[in-house]
Design a protein around this nucleic acid. Structure first.
Lengths: 180, 180
DNA sequence: GTCTATAATTTGATAGAC
DNA sequence: GTCTATCAAATTATAGAC
């Protein structure tokens, strides 16, 4: 594994738990067995690291979604895939969504990162709108996409806080059953 | 206004925007026109300040909820009050819920604060369960309460990030219309 | 309650050798 | 690409005078 990969892994682990300001170059240096000045070689400013992190997280998320919807046909199949991708992020990594956390910290972050997180959410909404039923009115599609996104993000936060992943399942199942 | 009130106001303003680690004693000192050592007189450790902040936020939230539901009779009336209290926190303060943000940062915070945030969520859920229709099965009540809480928290985060409070209204209206 | 002074540590960041 | 060395600033926190 390359040094930048190791750095991004370590940074993602820490940032998805404590937030942007909980990650320091020295922590990452000790995580990856190099010196903090070497971390700066890969990511000169913290902003660069944060941006790279959101970019990698975002493209991995979209890749997972594409993979899990390869054979999906119905809206329900697509939505179950969406739920499964987010659930995997919660359960396997034992952490909430990177963009959910950075979105909450929004005003305290560098502008470039704020905007990149916003882009992640916009891509989520566009995707959700694209897989909702054709006969659903456009305005309702948009509303439903927003509700599903917000619901899944809130569900991660609450489940993590209550230390009970079943809460995520309960909430998102109810959303998928009742909101369509 | 007392110094502790001024301190809590300043701390809440900052923490609800950038999170726990974005607030420093020196910032609060300059906000309130005293020295950082004097801030420590009021709140010896940062943990003390954070805890006091969540406690005040939580009791103000519960007070607002009690006030707005004084004449409420139906489940719908209670839920509209719940929505209104959270909406006011978003629109008037132009910031998301303190506990929503601290909940997301959970793992990076002192344990006492984590637990106090958890208590805020538990009180929310208990209240929601208590105002849901009598004929709703207990398990469904609990699921619905969790969905409503997560949905409102996610809606704040998304609306703030997209810089469009109408998104909050759209999401929470849909939840109140379809989830009951 | 507030101040001055200061300690101890952490943090983001850079210069320059290898 | 990584290291040593170092810096300037920020951060939490304390001691003691007024």
């Amino acid at each position: 594994m390359s040094t930048t990969e190791k750095l991004l892994d370590a940074a993602e682990y820490r940032m998805r738990r404590g937030g942007y300001n909980s990650v320091s170059f020295r922590d990452l240096a000790s995580d990856t067995q190099i010196k903090s000045s070497s971390v700066h070689y890969h990511y000169p400013k913290k902003e660069d690291l944060g941006l790279a992190l959101v970019e990698r997280y975002s493209s991995q998320f979209n890749d997972e979604l594409a993979k899990k919807t390869k054979t999906a046909k119905t809206t329900q199949e697509h939505l179950r895939a969406y739920q499964a991708v987010i659930r995997a992020a919660l359960v396997e990594d034992d952490a909430i969504c990177l963009c959910g956390l950075l979105g909450a910290e929004g005003a305290g972050l560098p502008n470039v990162i704020q905007h990149r997180v916003q882009q992640f959410f916009n891509e989520n909404i566009n995707w959700l709108v694209s897989i909702l039923p054709n006969d659903m009115p456009k305005a309702e599609k948009l509303a439903t996409a927003n509700t599903l996104l917000a619901g899944h993000q809130g569900a991660m936060m609450l489940a993590k806080n209550m230390q009970d992943n079943k809460i995520f399942d309960t909430i998102t199942n109810q959303l998928l059953e009742q909101v369509i």
